[in-house]
Simulated scan of single mutants.
Amino acid sequence: MTSTRKPLAALPFAALLVAAAALTACAPQDSASDAGATAAGTAGGCAPGALATRTAGTLTVGTDKPAYDPWFTEDKPENGKGFESAVAYAVAEKLGYPKEKVSWVVAPFGKATTPGAKDFDFDINQVSISAERKQAVDFSSGYYDVRQAVIALKNSKAASAKGIADLKGAKLGAQVGTTSLDVVTNTIKPSVQPAVFDSNDLAKAALRNGQIEALVVDLPTAFYITGAEVTDAQVVGQFEGAAQGEQFGLVLDKGSALTGCVSKAVDALRADGTLAKLEKQWLSDAVSAPVLK
C-alpha cells in the first residue's frame, strides 16, 4: 500500500509471486536502532505465551477496515483466511499464542505508522518497511517481497503502455501514504497531477467511473481488482520494486519489547517454509505481468 499499502483482495493470480515466497528472505535489516530494538525484544527472552503484551496472555493484532482480499477474506481478519490473516496466526503460534489467544483491533493504515502509543502488539496491513517509517515505529523482519503494478481501463490509452514513459501523460491515482503513491510521484513522474485517495475503495470507484485512467497498487491487489471488482480494467504491468528490496513488515510501537521476538518468529516461518506455503496458497495463482521500464 503498499504500501504500500495497500490495499485489497483473492482470485487466481500468478506463479510469479512464488518468487516472493523467498519473499522476506532478503529483508533489509539496517541501522543501530534496529539492533537496539532487537536487543530489547530478546533481553527478557521470548517465553512462549508469556511476552510483555498489552493484555497478559493475549496477543493483540491490528489491521485496517475494511480488510481486503487476498490479504484477508470476507473482511474478517479473525477467520484465519487470506495471506496476512494466516501469517498473523502463524506468527502468533510461533510466539506461543494459539488462535483463541489472539485478539484483533482496527488500526487505520495512516495511523499505524505514525508516532505514538499503539493499541496493538503488532499490526499487519501491507506496510512497506522504509527508513522514514522506522523513525516512528519498529518493523519486524519482512514477510513478503512487494512489487507494485499499474491497472488501467481497457479503453484508455494507458492500457497499451509498454513502458514508464507511456504512462507520463495519463491521469493516475493511488492511495495516500503508500508506496504505490511513491511509485507514481518518483518513478512515473506524470505530467498530469495524480489523484490521491484516502482509501483504495475511493480509488477503485474513481477508476471505475473514468475519473482516472490508471491506478497503482501492489501486484496481488491489481489482479484481484481487475478480476473481481473493476472487470473493464486490466493489469498493464509491474514495476521493479521487489528488486530494490521492498518488503512488507509487521509494525510495532517504537522501541517495543516485542520487536526482537516477533522478528525471530517471522524468520523461523521463512526458514521452515511456512511463508512460502501460505503465499502459494493465497497469492500465487496470479498471471504474470510484464515489467515496465
Rank of each mutant, 00 (worst) to 15 (best):
Ala92Asp: 04
Asp272Ser: 03
Gln247Pro: 00
Ala15Arg: 09
Phe120Leu: 02
Val91Trp: 10
Thr42Cys: 13
Val102Phe: 06
Asp267Ile: 02
Ala174Phe: 00
Lys101Gln: 13
Pro7Phe: 12
Phe83Gly: 02
Asp123Ala: 12
Ala35Glu: 14
Leu252Thr: 07
Pro290Arg: 05
Gly116Asn: 04
Val262Asn: 00
Tyr144Thr: 12
Asp138Ala: 03
Glu213His: 07
Gly241Tyr: 13
Ala271Trp: 10
Gly96Leu: 03
Ala205Cys: 06
Gly44Leu: 12
Ala174Asp: 08
Asn155Leu: 09
Ser160Thr: 08
Glu279Ile: 11
Thr178Pro: 01
Val61Ile: 14
Pro115Arg: 01
Thr2Glu: 14
Ala56Glu: 13
Asp267Ser: 08
Gly49Thr: 09
Val106Thr: 01
Gln238Met: 09
Tyr89Thr: 14
Lys204Asp: 05
Ala43Ile: 08
Asp138Ser: 14
Ile151Gly: 03
Asp138Thr: 00
Arg270Ser: 11
Leu11Cys: 08
Ser128Pro: 04
Ala14Phe: 04
Asp30Cys: 02
Pro290Thr: 07
Leu283Phe: 14
Ala228Trp: 08
Trp104Pro: 09
Val230Met: 12
Ala271Arg: 08
Thr55Met: 08
Ala136Cys: 01
Pro28Met: 03
Asn79Asp: 15
Gln135Ser: 04
Lys157Trp: 05
Asp201Ser: 14
Arg5His: 01
Ala19Ser: 14
Cys26Trp: 13
Val266Ala: 12
Ala15Glu: 10
Val137Tyr: 00
Ala286Ser: 05
Glu84Ala: 09
Lys168Asn: 06
Val216Ile: 14
Asp34Val: 01
Lys293Ala: 11
Thr114Lys: 15
Tyr143Leu: 07
Thr38Trp: 13
Tyr89Val: 13
